[in-house]
Design a protein around this nucleic acid. Structure first.
Length: 562
DNA sequence: GCCGTTTTCGGCCCGACTGTTTTCAGTCG
């Protein structure tokens, strides 16, 4: 995201958090969060936008538009600094502790002078919390436990980690009685917790759930929450007749559900997880499937991958949702390593696995020699690899294309000469070091690579490693424009540790007519299965078949590259 | 603070679960 937009969004969120602690009007607070969210996903930089232009952004009115302009100029805004003068900013950290909200933070601060996590821990250990009205012993010990959980906070799961947790918990559930919902079902790149809908009886499932989990967080008649491998799992119990509304509710996203409920209000209805009620008449309807519920709202079915309130609801109401990419349309993998750099398998083994998967082609892209972390190929190495690939291709239903993943140096130059690159079928260029350059330097570095006529695809464009390394700061709008101008594709790196570009960047690139290339970055033939994560990310980025290089036939792909 | 196919004022999604102040506020998703 643009660095300025990040600053603006962060300031607006900080304002919201401080106002919550202050006890301001919840709707005013939500307005700040909503505006921050919209700014965060905006492809354009807000720097330099006029008040009128800013007010065209959803959730931005005159007041916030002026605050945004002030943040662009000064890095903050007057009201935020004023609130900071009355409410210590350190209190925001306390909001992250599970079970502690703004009201609690306010009282802890005013009554006990608690400003930090350490203050809170000392107060709880010293049994000073229970002295305030409204808090008892249980609350005190819960807080101590919550502080521990917060400190050892397990970061958000990758999709692979989420699948391990899901496998563990659903192993004790009866086949056909459950469905996984939540952000996993929507295919988000990282997952905070697991949500499951179950039609079993809570009491019947209780013992099995306990046996499969580390800890019971809480349980009621309709919901049980447990911890598995340090991660929260919520199981929501429902009747088969209400499965549809429960799945919609539990799948989210939150903003998508809010929009659905607003639509229902316009019709005089109320949506909840049990179905749709008529506000006046009091009648209610149940939906066994999601499809029936969408139909009742007068919309086409919205697939979970699109349920983010990014414009899909308006299209569904007009029955104008496009057909998005399907996994079956993928004809090959466009980023795979072999033993000739840091991969574990030979070209022959990769071709065999590709054939098993029904692929028409796989693009072999070993690292270039400059790269310190991996044994890379120089010009001579590429020539010998060409012979190895030709030999495999004489006898394989899956054609190996010869490419390279050439390193983009700090100044944007490439680690192999153009003469070597021109002999290849396709060239990926990627950044593998110096991730923390100044945004403008990084932007120019990538654009320089995009402008090289031999470069076909920019690999993992932001360099992020989920939970490990943030995306490099750069002006993605300029990168996308340059890719569009030069006909260079951007990669959707399908590795569950990367998923780079992310879904929103994919959508922005797609909207500008940039082609996207799906590559697993496999270093082992088992990792070719990561393609499914790339397909999901492409779908979340609203890609249709024609936006994706990998849906081309071998002939079309060669034609595109030449 | 935002917003408008009843509205420029008066709304703003909806419910589960917990602890504790026994009827509900706070937190969470």
């Amino acid at each position: 995201m643009d660095a300025t937009n990040r600053t603006v969004a962060d300031s607006l969120v900080a304002m919201g958090e401080l106002l919550e602690i202050k006890g301001e009007d919840p709707f005013k607070i939500r307005a700040f969060y909503r505006a921050a969210e919209e700014i965060g996903r905006l492809p354009r930089s807000v720097a330099g936008m006029s008040t009128d232009e800013l007010m065209e952004i959803r959730g931005v009115g005159k007041a916030i538009a002026q605050k945004i302009q002030e943040i662009v100029r000064t890095g903050t805004f007057t009201e935020l600094e004023e609130v900071r003068g009355t409410i210590p900013s350190t209190l925001i950290e306390l909001l992250d502790v599970p079970g502690i909200g703004p009201k609690t933070v306010n009282r802890l601060w005013k009554k006990l002078g608690i400003l930090t996590l350490d203050d809170l821990e000392r107060a709880a250990r010293g049994h000073r919390i229970r002295a305030i009205g409204g808090f008892g012993e249980k609350k005190e010990s819960d807080m101590l436990q919550a502080i521990q959980i917060h400190r050892s906070r397990s970061r958000r799961m990758t999709l692979l980690e989420a699948e391990k947790v899901i496998a563990k918990i659903t192993a004790v559930m009866q086949p056909g009685t459950f469905a996984v919902a939540g952000s996993y079902r929507r295919g988000k790149s990282t997952i905070g917790d697991i949500d499951i809908v179950s039609t079993e009886h809570p009491q019947a499932l209780r013992q099995r759930l306990l046996a499969a989990s580390d800890e019971l967080i809480d349980e009621g008649e309709r919901r049980t929450s447990v911890r598995v491998d340090g991660q929260r799992v919520d199981i929501r119990f429902t009747d088969k007749r209400q499965c549809g509304s429960m799945l919609v509710y539990l799948t989210g996203s939150k903003n998508f559900n809010i929009r659905l409920r607003e639509i229902a209000i316009g019709k005089g209805w109320r949506i909840n997880e049990y179905g749709i009620e008529e506000r006046e008449a009091g009648g209610s309807r149940e939906y066994e499937t999601e499809e029936e519920m969408f139909a009742a709202l007068g919309m086409s079915y919205v697939h979970p991958h699109q349920r983010e309130d990014r414009g899909e609801i308006a299209l569904a109401l007009r029955h104008a949702l496009p057909e998005f990419l399907h996994a079956a349309e993928i004809r090959g993998d466009l980023h795979v390593h072999t033993t000739m750099s840091d991969g574990h398998h030979t070209p022959a083994q990769i071709a065999e696995k590709g054939a098993q998967k029904g692929y028409e082609y796989i693009l072999i892209t070993d690292h270039s020699a400059s790269l310190g972390i991996a044994e890379g190929l120089d010009t001579a190495g590429l020539e010998s690899q060409r012979r190895a690939i030709d030999a495999v291709n004489t006898d394989s239903s899956c054609t190996l294309l010869h490419g390279v993943e050439v390193d983009i140096a700090a100044d944007g130059s490439l680690a192999l000469p153009n003469s070597a690159l021109s002999a290849l079928d396709l060239v990926i260029a990627s950044v593998h070091g110096g991730f923390r350059q100044e945004p403008d330097v990084m932007t120019r570095r990538i654009i320089t690579a995009i402008e090289n006529e031999h470069v076909d695809i920019i690999g993992h464009p932001t360099g992020r490693m989920l939970g490990e390394r943030p995306a490099s700061a750069m002006d993605m709008e300029r990168v996308i424009d340059a890719a569009a101008e030069n006909g260079t594709a951007l990669e959707i790196n399908a590795s569950p540790y990367r998923l780079d570009l992310d879904d929103e960047q994919v959508k922005n690139a797609r909207d500008q007519g940039v082609k996207l290339a799906l590559g697993t970055d496999a270093h082992d033939i088992e990792e070719l299965q990561f393609m499914r994560f790339g397909v999901i990310t492409a779908r979340r980025g609203w890609c249709r078949k024609e936006d994706i290089l990998n849906t081309m036939t071998l002939g079309e792909l060669k034609e595109w590259a030449s």
